[in-house]
């Protein structure tokens, strides 16, 4: 009886494990489409760092001078990251600098006016109540 039980359990386990091979069931090995690419991730870092400088300034942790110098530096980094991301998205093509300037300006405006999503740094249109990228309510926007 015991032996029968053991054989049955072992058989079931082996079948469970070998089934994908026998029946040809494949697990996906692809990277998901909606996953952040490396350039997107960099862009996020740069934008979030910019957001934090704004916060530190508002919280009185940075004085005007430090704030300006850090901000100009981070803006340059964000610009580079945006550019790299655009290049990656355009499949290697060069993006017109004007577009980036526009995006940065937009972002700055968003950061100041609060339309930039505090969670994912997506810049939303003026008057947005929810983030178009992640759905966060912008009415409760964050100052962290």
């Amino acid at each position: 009886m015991l032996i029968l039980g053991v054989v049955l359990v072992a058989g079931a386990v082996v079948l469970f494990i070998l089934q994908p091979l026998i029946k040809g069931i494949h697990a996906s090995l692809e990277r998901e489409d909606d996953e952040l690419t490396e350039t997107e991730a960099r862009k996020r870092v740069a934008l979030l760092a910019l957001r934090d400088v704004e916060y530190d300034f508002l919280a009185g942790k940075l004085d005007e001078e430090d704030y300006r110098s850090m901000k100009s530096r981070l803006t340059a980094e964000a610009l580079a990251a945006l550019e790299a991301d655009e290049v990656a998205r355009a499949g290697g093509g060069v993006v017109a600098a004007d577009d980036i300037e526009a995006e940065i300006a937009n972002l700055r405006y968003g950061l100041r006016s609060g339309f930039s999503c505090p969670a994912c740094a997506f810049t939303n249109g003026e008057g947005s109540r929810f983030c178009s990228a992640c759905g966060l309510s912008l009415g409760e926007r964050v100052a962290t």
Partner: peptide
């Protein structure tokens, strides 16, 4: 899990990767 993350999980075409993984910038 942050509130934002829960909301993002509910939103279509976004997943865990939208988590403010880099919110630690601060």
């Amino acid at each position: 899990p942050s509130v934002d993350r829960k909301r993002m999980a509910a939103a279509p075409h976004t997943g865990e990767q939208q988590e403010p993984a880099l919110a630690g910038a601060a």
